[in-house]
Design a protein around this nucleic acid. Structure first.
Lengths: 125, 125
DNA sequence: GCTGATTGACTACAGCCGTAATCGGTGCGA
DNA sequence: TCGCACCGATTACGGCTGTAGTCAATCAGC
């Protein structure tokens, strides 16, 4: 579970999602994919790619005149880190209040509940 | 569930926690309370209080020469917003993958599991 | 009344973030 | 071979954030 040194900003995350979806990709590929979510210029996407490289969150392999970008951080690791951070910051590290919170907001569907039960059943074995 | 317009930054959140813990409080009270968590100068805390006021996240009532600060946003509302935002950003709005995620990281204690079961039991009625 | 401590307001400043324009190199088509 | 399109690199720039210093007013004590 490699630790993520630098923080991924909101805009950078959009780029990461594109790279996690498919990799490696050229800058223009990423830009095209990102265009579905955000109306950014290609330059903007390239800047974000540079910043992600500077933060060692992605890497690039040269392919002729262009680069092929790929994530160095797995989405699961990132997601785990963020989830843990939120749970620590807001719920003193306890997960059940989070679920209670979401439950009280009616944000849990019947399907969610069923899945949660399955997860718990699995954990008790 | 009042919507929170401006975002609360990391440092501002520390101040908010102090205010949620007890309110209203003077700036120095808040600074003292915050000192337990962060080694900040009183000025820093006052700046953060100003910024929170500018964002309409707290309000202040004059009390002689000083101000008494109080939150305008309930902790529960804030927490609900942040939780929802995270779940949407990273789990497509579904909560069970979050729990699965935390479970796979061994971040669930036996107590958590028991509490989750209770919550689920309550939800099914 | 004058002085020192206290308080909120204003100012500072570097670093990160969002968003992009521009520049310099280079490969490709005419 | 000449220019153009395309690429990554560099630069820009206003806003937010973290962290504080300084200033002007004011209250309390001598």
């Amino acid at each position: 579970m490699a630790d993520i040194g630098d923080k991924i900003s909101e805009a950078e995350l959009v780029v990461m999602e594109a790279l996690w979806e498919q990799s490696p990709q050229t800058a223009t590929d990423v830009a095209d994919r990102v265009a579905a979510a955000r109306d950014w210029s290609v330059q903007t996407v390239k800047t974000l790619l540079s910043r992600l490289m500077a933060k060692d969150i992605i890497a690039a392999d040269q392919d002729g005149r262009r680069f092929l970008y790929r994530p160095l951080v797995a989405r699961d690791d990132y997601v785990a880190g963020e989830s843990g951070r939120l749970v620590n910051r807001l719920f003193g590290g306890r997960i059940s209040p989070l679920v209670a919170q979401l439950a009280s907001q009616d944000q849990l569907t019947a399907e969610d509940i069923a899945e949660l039960e399955d997860i718990l059943k699995g954990l008790k074995s």
